[in-house]
Every structure is written in structure tokens, then in C-alpha cells.
Amino acid sequence: MKYLRQFGLVLLFSLLGELCRFLIPFPIPASIYGMILLFAALGLKIINLPAINDAGGWLVSILPVLFVAPAVNLLSSWDALKEALVPILVVMIATTVIVFAVAGLVTQWILKGRKGDKKDV
């Protein structure tokens, strides 16, 4: 029963997330609302970690598997991909470097409050 109860709790937050998405006219996905609500519920001690940790941890651990089917869908969007392949590759590589550098350097710069780390930004 433990897993069923925990899974039920997760579904409850999924439902609340969908409800928020339905009621609030803002393009935020249902799962984000669900995440924020679950975080708030944990923070406010409305539910405690052991009440959701086992089923929740399992669900997170299978997340990558759940994305196989969406990724296989590339077969159906091949045309859109083919047309923009070069831009996509450039954006992917360039922005990964940029984001890594900005996030890391800004953090380190604040931590040390020192000059000399400001390259590239």
C-alpha cells in the first residue's frame, strides 16, 4: 500500500498542476505548477519527505526512459530538422559554451569579489 499511497500523492500534485494550467492564463506547463506546489508543500511541512520519497525517487529514475518515444518522433519531424540542421548545430554548440561560461564566471566572480575573472563575459 505504501507505494500506492505515494503514487496517489504524486498524481494529486499532477492534477493540481493541470488545474493551475487550466485556471491561470499563462503559458507555464502543468508540470511546472506541480513542481512548485510540491516544493511548497514540502517546505511548509504539509507533507514530509518519507511520504513521497520512494515512489517519487523511482519516477525520477525512470525519466530518461520516458523520453525515448518523444525522441523517436524525430522520424516524423525529419523534414523540419533537415532544413535547419546547420543553424541547430551552431546554436547548440555556441550557446552551450556561452551559458557554461556566464553561469560559472558570474558565480565565481560573486564568490570571490575579485577582478581578473571577468574574461569572456
Partner: peptide, 22 residues
């Protein structure tokens, strides 16, 4: 055929909050 897996996406995503909270 994979709809059952896809269905789990929202609940599984929400559970990211657990480690986030920790």
C-alpha cells in the same frame, strides 16, 4: 504503444521537486 510511458511524464517531472527540496 508507448502512451503509457508518455503518460508518466508529468508525474515524474513533478517529482524533480523532491531532490530539489533536499
Amino acid at each position: 504503444g508507448c502512451q503509457a510511458l508518455t503518460w508518466l511524464l508529468t508525474p515524474a517531472t513533478i517529482c524533480l521537486s523532491i531532490s530539489f527540496y533536499q
